[in-house]
Design a protein around this nucleic acid. Sequence first.
DNA 1: CCTTGTGTTGAG
DNA 2: TCAACACAAGGG
Length: 360
Amino acid sequence: MDYSCVVDDSSTTSESLSISTPKEMMNKLSSPPSTTTRLYRMGSGGSSVVLDSDNGVETESRKLPSSKYKGVVPQPNGRWGAQIYEKHQRVWLGTFNEEEEAATSYDIAARRFRGRDAVTNFKSPTTTDAESAFLDAHSKAEIVDMLRKHTYADELEQSRRKFVNGNGNRCGSETAVSSNDAVSRAREVLFEKAVTPSDVGKLNRLVIPKQHAEKHFPLPAMTTETGVSPSPAKGVLINLEDRTGKVWRFRYSYWNSSQSYVLTKGWSRFVKEKNLRAGDVVCFERSTGPDRQLFIDWKVRSSPVQTVVRLFGVNIFNVATTGNPNDVAVEFGGGKKKRSRGDDLFSLGCSKKQTMINIL
DNA sequence: CCTTGTGTTGAG
DNA sequence: TCAACACAAGGG
């Protein structure tokens, strides 16, 4: 039933979806075995040969430890990658700190790609109905995206919540082009903020006005039931759904240095995808229902005082916000090697394609 | 700089 | 299909 989801030519997906993984301590060995020095390969490839500290004889111990789990491959830095193959191509499922986590991710992908009877590491022959439904309701690409972003568990849970809310009709697999089952749900506006230049600049953070932050997002007690990955001390992760149903996960924390509340990790992605510019408004909302589901919305600044950029007689101002997915991508300069497909495989049908403008 | 995840190959 | 290996490219 679903075709389009083939995760396209692997080579173009590198617009790295890396995210998440709170900067944890790398699990380097704290104390290597006394005599033989264990060396884990770091960085790019160099074949490192290790010397046995006793006799100085070269040994061949730099091989990465292979995993006992299917679909799991070691990473040079001690972490684990998950991958699954389909149609002669590898589909990368992300990297994980724990081997088992990677294995689980493989399992999920295997279920989605190969059906109920897929051979897996852990999953019992029959997944729960709820999860099966969830899997069926999402394209392979979407599932892969969740795995890579480590948001699968969250999204699965949220789907349950949504389901209870009486909106039972999820449209089948494929990308949901016009299903806005989330859009109509009742919600209240918590606050809005016109983003500043620095909010959309290179700082990769959004300052939440203190008053609003303390009123709506009290930091210490923020760990809601809404899947927030237990994040080490450094703030919390919060999930917000946008108008397209896409769930965004941001790190929310307090910066002592500037005495301000900020959204950090994940924010720049949002800025980029929505093409936010200074003056645009981001709106934080919350469903009025029992679930305290959070939403984030945005709108372009109402009075466009902006400078209209013209190029070759073509007005390219706001090209990315016209809502027309067929907007021309304008590119300057000798073609920086940017992945033109940008965000890609997972964009829900309704979200606009990313348009990229490079001005040298 | 470090990490991701792609290129690639050979085995099953 | 799959994992092993190497390493280019991307992101901080």
